[in-house]
Design a protein around this nucleic acid. Structure first.
Lengths: 100, 100
DNA sequence: AAGTTATTTCTAGTATTATCGAAATAAGAA
DNA sequence: TTCTTATTTCGATAATACTAGAAATAACTT
């Protein structure tokens, strides 16, 4: 992953409300969680919530799927895994290159 | 780790220049890297660099140690590990609770 | 069509962040 | 003590982000 993309995704997760949203989605599983459920669970005003979700969508960490009136938010596990992998590969001690 | 702290650290890493700084420090090893070396390696103006380093220090991801005129920046591996662990534990699919 | 529910877009005020030159500080060297 | 090196703090400007009420849109129900 390029550093620019990693930085963008980290920045979006670097906001308490958005991090809570993402965590809530992850707990909700692969089918996704309706926006309204996030709203009542976290107690965030609709317009504010929509703004934060849009940001998560913009960096590819969340995808939305509509079913009738309900919009489901689906966390993109693969993207988060890649981000975690980036941190581990690029920003943690690489023991294999280290001489004991 | 509390979500507030995690969010703060993610936010600080969520800036391309700061992420590059941190990555450079990690590559530099446990003894740390002088500010001046980061400056010439990344080509960032001194005042701007100082600002970014201060932010990393403020969230505990970097510690500074002075040796004469030279200030060494030391990446805090433990803190990054904790952050990565937070993401994996709280924001990734927990396979163990999943019925296979 | 009119009403209801679910969610977004608009708008605007406030706050935080990024940037970097210039001046200031810290510390060793002459 | 003066000079040089290393780095920070100050100050000012521009840009971006946060928040949330109100209005708009999307889609189902009656």
């Amino acid at each position: 992953m390029q550093i620019e993309i990693a930085a963008k995704r980290l920045a979006e997760l670097g906001h308490a409300t958005r991090l809570e949203i993402f965590r809530y989605l992850v707990k909700g599983g692969k089918t996704g969680v309706p926006v309204g459920e996030i709203q009542s669970a976290l107690g965030v005003p609709g317009s504010t919530l929509s703004h934060h979700i849009t940001r998560l969508v913009n960096v590819g960490l969340v995808v939305q799927r509509r079913e009738g009136r309900t919009l489901y938010c689906v966390p993109q596990y693969t993207e988060l895994d890649a981000l975690v992998a980036f941190l581990q590969d690029e920003c943690c001690i690489n023991e294999t290159t280290d001489s004991t």
